[in-house]
Simulated assay, not measured.
Amino acid sequence: MPAKSKAQQKAAGAALAAKRGDIPKSDLKGASKSMEESMTERQLDELASTKRKGKPEHVTKH
């Protein structure tokens, strides 16, 4: 599933880095922390590799 916003893509990238051991898990906050705990490496890679062009910075819930 592609990321819906730039913020979601960035959070997934941070969570993926922590899951791979590139950064300490203790550095994660908010959405990236919950993503790291609840998603697989493959799911995170899919979100993080989404193209950012044309994506809004944030998406509001309706």
Rank of each mutant, 00 (worst) to 15 (best):
K19W: 06
S26P: 10
K61M: 00
K29S: 06
D45Q: 14
K4E: 08
E36F: 01
I23C: 05
H62G: 02
A3D: 10
P24F: 00
K25C: 05
H58T: 06
G21D: 05
R52C: 07
S49C: 13
V59F: 01
K19H: 01
K53Y: 04
E36P: 01
V59P: 02
K25I: 08
K51H: 07
A15T: 08
M1E: 05
A48M: 00
S32P: 14
P56D: 02
I23V: 03
T50W: 03
A3N: 10
G54D: 03
R20L: 12
K25M: 10
K29V: 00
S49V: 10
P24H: 10
K29G: 04
A3G: 14
A14V: 04
T60F: 04
P24T: 04
S26A: 14
L28V: 00
A11P: 15
M39L: 10
H58Q: 05
A14W: 12
E57N: 08
Q43A: 12
E36Q: 11
E37K: 15
K55G: 03
S34N: 13
G13M: 15
L47D: 01
K19G: 01
S32R: 12
K10T: 14
E41F: 01
S49H: 12
D45S: 14
K10H: 13
A11T: 07
Q8F: 08
A18F: 09
L28Y: 02
K51C: 08
E41W: 01
V59K: 10
R42V: 12
K33E: 04
R52M: 12
Q43H: 12
K53F: 09
V59T: 05
S34T: 09
H58K: 10
Q9W: 11
K61I: 00
L28N: 04
T60N: 02
A12W: 13
Q8G: 01
S26W: 11
E57Q: 09
S5N: 04
R52H: 11
A18V: 02
S38L: 08
R42W: 08
S5V: 01
A17M: 13
Q9M: 13
I23L: 06
S26L: 14
L16R: 14
L47W: 03
M39Y: 08
K10F: 13
E37V: 10
A15I: 09
R52V: 09
L16C: 11
S38N: 07
H58F: 07
K53P: 02
H58M: 07
